[in-house]
């Protein structure tokens, strides 16, 4: 088994095929989208492949250490050009192919007009703990 992070972006990903902001959809289309996402997570829980899923607020700030005795420096809100993560799902699957296939399904979530969004998702393998047997 290997863990993969599926990352969803507010911005920074290549434009999706069906690229319409959500507040321009119909309320029914929004419901259908939310339902699809919930069903997807529920199905992965049933197959024993779901680990975690979380959404992030679009707001935040950069922070860094600024030396002994000084408060951390913050820089925010984010510039319009910053790549912005919207949320993630962590899955634990048998193969890279399975991870890709699941990400593909997630990207097919319905959007405006009830058609798939074709959203670009980032798929990132976790760096795992070293195996017991190495030779």
């Amino acid at each position: 088994m290997a863990k993969y992070l599926l990352l969803k972006h507010y911005r920074g990903a290549p434009a999706s095929v069906n690229d319409v902001p959500m507040d321009q959809w119909s309320p029914e289309e929004i419901s259908a989208h939310v339902q699809y996402m919930n069903d997807f997570a529920a199905r992965l829980e049933k197959t024993g492949e779901f680990v975690d899923g979380q959404a992030l607020a679009p707001e935040g700030a950069w922070v860094r250490y600024d030396g002994e005795g000084r408060p951390p420096v913050t820089d925010g809100p984010f510039a319009e050009t910053k790549d912005l993560i919207a949320g993630w799902m962590i899955i634990d699957v048998d193969s890279y192919e399975r991870a890709i296939s699941l990400a593909g399904e997630l990207s097919a979530a319905p959007g405006a007009g009830g058609k798939p969004i074709h959203e670009w998702l980032e798929v990132r393998p976790f760096l795992a703990a070293p195996p017991t047997i190495t030779e």
């Binding site: 902001p21 959500m22 507040d23 119909s26 309320p27 929004i30 959404a55 607020a57 679009p58 707001e59």
Partner: peptide
């Protein structure tokens, strides 16, 4: 303003609700 409120919503349920409100009025 509903779309702006959705952007600032503190949880998913509220965000979805506010986005739906914006969508309802836009439609």
């Amino acid at each position: 303003l509903y779309a702006e409120a959705a952007h600032k919503a503190p949880n998913l349920a509220e965000r979805d609700h506010l986005t739906r409100q914006a969508a309802r009025l836009n439609a």
